[in-house]
Amino acid sequence: MALTTMGGAGVTQEKIEQRHRLFNRICFGVLIAFALLWLVPLAWAVDTALKPNAETTRTTWLIDNPTFAAFQRVLDDTAILNWFGASLITATMTAVGTVITASLAAFALSRLRFRYRNLVFWIILAGIMIPGQVLIVPQFREMDALGLLNTYWAVSLPQIPTAIAIFIFKQFFDGLPRDLEEAARIDGAGWFRIYRQVVMPLARPAVAAVAIFTFVTSWNDLLWPLLVLTNPDLMTVPVGLATVQGAFGIRYADTMASAVLGAIPLVAVFLLFQRNIVEGIAGTGLKG
């Protein structure tokens, strides 16, 4: 890691600091430019949604008569509130199911001693290698056979067993101190009580990361709910919005209003849980 000294004696400490300060200022400028560029499509969508449909033929940011009428029309003409409901139910079912099943399994893998523990762990980890998308054909057949097509169960159940969630919980449990649970053990507490009353309350950050990440992934999924939900009343937000493009045609204000409405719940989730989401990704990334 030895760095060649640059400039030799001629460069004073002050000059070096100046150079670093200038460099940081350039960094800041470039970064601001990119960030603004990244926000343009979102701002453009909001801007267009506030126009009357007739004004969307002019490519300008200025609006003569800003109006919320497009939002009102989307709420009236589409089943978007039903789609919100469907997404909320399926994403919550998936998140709750994942947190419970994955944390239980991870607890066993982290705390209990049993034969073939490593084998079980490896079998679970191998599941990460199977992308859910390659299973859509047999999973669809299965849901059909179980009579679950056009139910929220069909959307949610295959998304619950995710190996990555177990991995995150196990990492977290492995890092927890064991004094408390050993004390509880001596007091005669069973394993399930230790899981529920000692370990899980300490694992809030892991629970938050897994729950939020699963919720967002499930909310955003398109391919699978598109296959198993054909009833318009049951559609999730992505599936419903996929039908909007054709329905609205050139009514661009309405189209953008539906996009903005479709974005709002997740933008809210993001603003509320920004730290958990970012830490969740960073955590899995570095250790995965």
């Binding site: 979102l42 919005l241 493009q245 189209t255």
Partner: peptide
């Protein structure tokens, strides 16, 4: 910066598609 770069990632693909189809629209697109 986190907001600007990460906010799009959290949107459903359907929202992204609606916005970008409009961005790419001939004559009317941004």
């Amino acid at each position: 910066f986190r907001l600007a770069f990460f906010a799009p990632f959290i949107l459903p693909s359907a929202v992204v598609a609606l916005i970008w189809i409009f961005m790419y629209t001939p004559e009317l697109g941004l």
